[in-house]
Simulated scan of single mutants.
Amino acid sequence: MPAHVPPVADERDGLLAYLTQQRQALRATAHGLTDDQARATPTASELSIGGLIKHAARCEAGWTDLILQRRRGPQRAADESDADEFRLAPDETLADVLDQYEAAVRDTDEVVAGIADLGRPVPVPQGLPWFPADVPAWSVRWVLLHLIEETARHGGHADIIRESIDGATLFPLLAAAERWPDPWFQPWQAPTG
């Protein structure tokens, strides 16, 4: 992802390309972190990079389930609070949540590839305060736009957290994580000492 999404062929390609770019940026914020650093909450909020990636994985899986109207059971433990979704539990690792995110990403991409019409309705769950009661359905297109927005918002949170942990910023992290040839700045390197 050297700075920009490549040219796109059509709407579907564009939506998925921008979603892919935001996913890569979110994952890059975790590049080179230890599990303890991924748990760190160095800003005014209680958000951590590991927790944001965990949430992004669950969010993407939940929206894909909604598109397909499939029920896989709870995405979190019965005793887990909303705040716990944004934290790594003591028995979770950064590698665990990155793997969960990768699985959710693959599933979303496969599901979207199999849908001929992005205008296909996606029923809005009823009875939940965070979903509008007066909207019967969104479209797959709307869901993809929402995933881009959600991933970008949390990627911004993760950028601030990462910079607070060790000063690292997105493009040096991407250059290091993706091994960009001839980057126009110094790729991030783990601090020595």
Rank of each mutant, 00 (worst) to 15 (best):
L47Y: 12
L47V: 04
A17N: 11
Q69M: 11
E60L: 08
R39L: 13
A38T: 00
C59I: 10
A40F: 02
C59R: 01
T34H: 01
Y18G: 01
L16A: 05
L68M: 15
Q22S: 14
D36T: 01
I49R: 11
I49L: 12
L26S: 09
L19I: 03
P42M: 11
G32N: 07
G62T: 07
A61P: 07
D35Q: 01
L33T: 00
L47R: 11
Q21D: 15
L19T: 01
A25G: 02
L52W: 07
Y18P: 03
H55L: 02
Q22W: 09
L15F: 06
T29R: 12
L52P: 00
D65T: 06
R39N: 08
L33A: 03
R58G: 15
W63Y: 15
R39I: 12
T29G: 09
R27S: 11
L15Y: 01
R58K: 07
L66F: 05
L19E: 06
R39Q: 13
L15Q: 06
L15G: 05
I53H: 03
R39D: 10
L68R: 15
T41Q: 15
Q37N: 04
R27K: 10
S48F: 03
I49D: 13
G51Q: 11
T20F: 01
I67N: 08
Y18R: 10
C59V: 14
E60P: 14
A61Y: 01
E46Y: 12
T20E: 14
C59D: 15
D35C: 08
W63A: 00
P42C: 13
Q24L: 15
L19K: 02
P42T: 04
D35E: 13
L68C: 13
G51K: 06
T41K: 10
R58P: 00
A25W: 05
T29F: 09
Q24S: 12
S48V: 02
R23V: 06
G51V: 07
D36F: 00
G50C: 08
